[in-house]
Design a binder for these strands. Structure first.
Length: 571
RNA sequence: GGACCUAUAGCCUAGCCUGGAUAGGGCGUCGGACUUCUAAUCCGAAAGUCGCAGGUUCGAAUCCUGCUAGGUCCGCCA
């Protein structure tokens, strides 16, 4: 099976371009603007400089030199560009033969083992005093889809979660429960129940400044191991975590390992003291230990151990890095955390580097979600609740399903609404590049039209519907000359690019590239759909078009799988 | 005061790493397409000083410098 991509093209061109290496040519190759009916374009500016010749002339020379083959069916110079067209037969053949492996076809064909990594990815690491908000949803979707992508590309991925289950914020919820909870058991989703007490604390603390002192009293009694305090702490933490598990299940995430701050927060001190002995760190006059990072890392100094000898938050993260290495012997460790902690991770990685822990750490940072009224504040209850968003969007989807299919069973309506609603939320978040923060407008944010998850699902369902109705067995033994409509050619061209988008997303951790690719593919498909009838009296044409749309469906499915979005045959 | 991120039509956004063909999409607006495989769709139109000013280059949304605006961080909090 012949597979043709940029690399293949570069290998052909390098024969005629002695000044450049294959990899350089591959990097230069671009996808031409859509109106140009070629698969790839080689811009001749660089080579023109080297040869001190006009790029137009070089393109023309190449046009004459590069031979047409059954793979490379057309080569044409247009101005300074050499445009190349690959035979669409080989694109569809590859997809049809390799099916779900098409997105990683080069790896499969070359039986690639090299470059496979053991990767630990940590997310969403919530605090256990309040329910997950919309920011956590973004975190979870990024973490999950990146895990899917890396797994798809053959890496060993270990998903881990860290519960931030101790500290003053936890004690505040505990205090409120003690004072106003009447030993009540949860009468709602249990993480929300816990969160209510956090909000209650904040309300009451505004009026009563002694509350804070009381909360610290609980913290001290927790630290001294007071049994009553520990019991309450365990009870409330379990409620929070039980609630999270529900949400995790809805979003289809699970973890290879869960770490708890309460097990870690005292650890790491040894590492710091060792660093102090090795003169990596310094001791302040009052006994606190800190590190100077200005000169070597251009970062502010950072304290690591308090003057009373207790650990600071970052100390446990230092410990956890070693711990993960021990647990998983990873090649790379990824932290999915919002961009407000950018500096924290610069500190962490710098300190680890200083300690000689030369591992490949990566902070996958993403922009925070705010509301039209400003930043979300869980203390004040001005948050968009994760569970609420999911529920709301499922309800909206149910209304749409009802409108279109009033006669199907209620359970089927609910099933579809769930899948469509989740697709809407997931795609809405994943189509944007992660670095940008965004404003969540509750009333108008989630839609089912335009650049949305349901739009992609709709394409998939349309294809399923045609295939079902046709009933002809799909094969790649077709008359290839029949696929010559403008929209057909454009569609096949889009399909050719998919593995390269997967590679690019994997290399840069830019999940949104996959969503953006799917949008383009589906837009092209819908154009095709509206001008090319598949089911036809011309059985040869029908067979050819069936293969084409089957290939589109395969690619949509791979892409949506990575994004964690389910498909529907009917919607 | 210092560090980082962001700025692209009324609104949202891709492209920026690695400079290259007329800056792609979507929402909204206006006009059109369902007796034909699902109209959650498609076709067309109007709408852009790519924040501003310099610089590098044959060529800048993309690279460099300065500035402006917004966000985040700079704690012996987590």
């Amino acid at each position: 099976m012949k597979f043709i991509d940029k690399k293949t093209i570069a290998e052909i061109l390098v024969e005629h371009l002695s000044d450049l290496r294959t990899e350089e040519i591959e990097a230069l190759l671009e996808i031409p603007p859509s109106e140009i009916d070629f698969t790839y374009a080689f811009p001749c500016f660089k080579i023109a400089k080297l040869k001190k010749k006009s790029p137009d002339i070089i393109a023309k020379e190449l046009e004459n030199e590069v031979k047409h083959t059954k793979f490379l069916v057309d080569v044409e110079a247009i101005g300074p560009y050499l445009n190349l067209k690959i035979n669409p037969k080989y694109i569809l053949d590859c997809i049809f033969e390799y099916k779900d492996d098409y997105g990683r076809i080069r790896d499969v064909i070359e039986k690639r083992k090299k470059g496979k990594l053991r990767i630990v990815i940590e997310y969403p690491s919530p605090n256990t005093n309040k329910p997950l908000h919309f920011g956590h949803i973004r975190n979870i979707l990024l973490g999950k889809s990146l895990s899917n992508l890396l797994e798809y590309k053959g890496h060993d991925v270990f998903q881990v979660n860290l519960y931030n289950n101790r500290g003053i914020h936890i004690c505040k919820s505990m205090l409120a429960y003690k004072k106003w909870g009447n030993n009540k058991e949860p009468d709602k989703k249990s993480d929300h129940f816990v969160g209510d007490f956090y909000v209650k604390y904040s309300e009451m603390a505004k009026k009563d400044e002694h509350l804070e002192e009381e909360a610290y009293k609980i913290l001290r009694s927790w630290e001294s191991g007071d049994e009553e305090t520990l019991n309450l702490w365990k009870k409330m933490n379990n409620w929070a975590i039980e609630g999270f598990k529900d949400t995790f299940k809805k979003l289809d995430i699970s973890f290879d390992k869960e770490y708890f701050e309460s097990d870690l927060y005292l650890k790491g001190k040894e590492i710091i003291l060792e660093g102090l002995r090795n003169n990596k760190f310094e001791k302040a006059e009052d006994g606190a230990i800190f590190v100077r990072l200005k000169e070597r890392y251009n970062l502010p100094d950072k304290f690591l151990i308090r003057s009373d000898g207790t650990s600071i938050y970052i100390t446990q993260d230092i410990y956890l890095a070693y711990k993960k290495k021990e647990d998983y012997n990873y090649d790379r460790s990824i932290y999915v955390v919002a961009d407000e902690q950018n500096q924290h991770f610069k500190w962490l990685f710098a300190i680890l580097d200083l300690l000689g822990f030369k591992e490949d750490n990566y902070h996958l940072s993403y922009g925070m979600i705010s509301l039209p009224s400003g930043k979300m504040k869980s203390r004040e209850g001005t948050v968009v609740d994760g569970d609420d968003v999911i529920e709301e969007v499922e309800n909206l989807a149910l209304i749409e399903v009802n409108k279109r299919y009033p006669n199907i069973s209620e359970s089927e309506k609910l099933r579809r609404a769930k899948i469509i609603g989740l697709a809407a939320v997931k795609f809405y978040i994943l189509k944007y590049s992660a670095t940008k923060g965004f404003v969540f407008k509750p009333d108008e944010s989630i839609s089912f039209e335009g650049e949305t998850g349901p739009y992609i699902q709709y394409c998939y369902a349309r294809i399923a519907s045609i295939i079902l109705k046709s009933g002809i067995e799909i094969s790649n033994d077709i008359n290839w000359d029949l696929l010559n409509h403008e929209h057909e050619l454009f569609l096949m061209k889009q399909l050719a690019y998919f593995p390269e988008f997967i590679d690019s997303a994997e290399k840069t951790y830019n999940i949104h590239l996959i969503a953006q690719y799917l949008l383009t593919l589906c837009q092209v498909f819908n154009s095709f759909y509206s001008s090319c009838q598949v089911i036809s009296d011309n059985r040869e044409l029908e067979k050819a078009r069936l293969l084409l749309i089957k290939c589109v469906q395969i690619v949509i499915k791979i892409g949506l799988n990575i994004l964690g979005i389910e498909t529907l045959d009917k919607m």
